[in-house]
């Protein structure tokens, strides 16, 4: 018994020293990175309930925009550094011009310092994580919610809002687009020089342009014919999921 206690003490002391060492190196060799996502329409910051002119001539506003991102990596010639497994970007609280400029900020602690040449982001829930269910997570984890049983999949992107097809001020056509399943997952590779320093002042500004999700090369989603879709009609599902990757860009690039 005594032997056991002494052993335990030594072990605990060792763990203590080891973890304190780790802490030291941590502070010097990692930093906190903030990915700051701004939602825009045609490059202009967009907030919930803000009217914009849609390609069809309709007046539209959105009141909910959510996007999962997953398996986020920083890349350089020697490593691919995983920095975030999954995050849920929720813009529903962004309801005025000031917060629209700031957007949604995702803080990622403990990113190894260094020079990186690209940021890789999975848009949607990676198939590996999409095979899990809310039961696998603690209650505040993003994957504890936002699941759609019918698809056995998370809802990777939600666009909800209302439209007045005549371009007026009576926005009584409800729009809902829920995009999910593994087919909705894509990866983007954003190249630039990213220097991560120790401390908290590392920020990468990104933009999600809703206009690029809803319109492409002279075509636009026909919101009159398809005001609502739940990843069932290819005309909607394919259009949205295939447009998404080019809608997420580094800000000012």
């Amino acid at each position: 018994m005594k032997k056991f206690t002494i052993l335990t003490i030594i072990l605990l002391a060792f763990i203590g020293i080891a973890s304190s060492c780790e802490k030291n190196t941590d502070d010097n060799e990692t930093g906190t990175l903030s990915l700051q996502f701004q939602l825009t329409y045609g490059g202009e910051p967009l907030h919930m309930f803000e009217r914009f002119n849609y390609a069809s001539g309709a007046s539209v506003f959105i009141d909910r925009f959510n996007l999962f991102i997953s398996d986020v990596k920083l890349v350089n010639s020697t490593t691919k550094q995983s920095i975030k497994d999954v995050a849920w970007l929720d813009f529903s609280g962004i309801q005025d011009k000031t917060t629209a400029k700031t957007g949604v900020r995702l803080e990622i602690p403990k990113v190894p310092v260094g020079q990186y040449s690209a940021l890789e982001i999975g848009l949607g829930v990676s198939p590996e994580l999409n095979a899990t269910t809310p039961s696998n997570y603690s209650a505040s984890h993003p994957l504890a919610n936002n699941y759609w049983e019918q698809w056995n999949s998370y809802i990777s992107m939600v666009i909800e809002g209302k439209a007045d097809l005549t371009g007026g001020t009576t926005h009584n056509l409800i729009l809902t687009y829920h995009v999910g399943t593994n087919d909705a997952y894509s990866r983007i590779n954003l190249e630039d020089n990213f220097l991560i320093k120790s401390g908290k002042n590392n920020v990468i500004l990104l933009e999600i342009d809703l206009k690029k999700i809803l319109t492409k090369e002279g075509q636009h989603l026909d919101i009159e014919r398809f005001p609502r879709d739940h990843s069932t009609r290819p005309e909607v599902f394919d259009f949205l999921r295939l447009n998404l990757p080019s809608a997420v860009v580094l800000k000012n690039k």
């Binding site: 309930f49 009141d63 909800e160 209302k162 926005h171 409800i174 809902t176």
Partner: peptide
């Protein structure tokens, strides 16, 4: 309402 949830139809 302007903020009636889009899933209420």
């Amino acid at each position: 309402a302007e903020n009636l949830d889009a899933n209420i139809l």
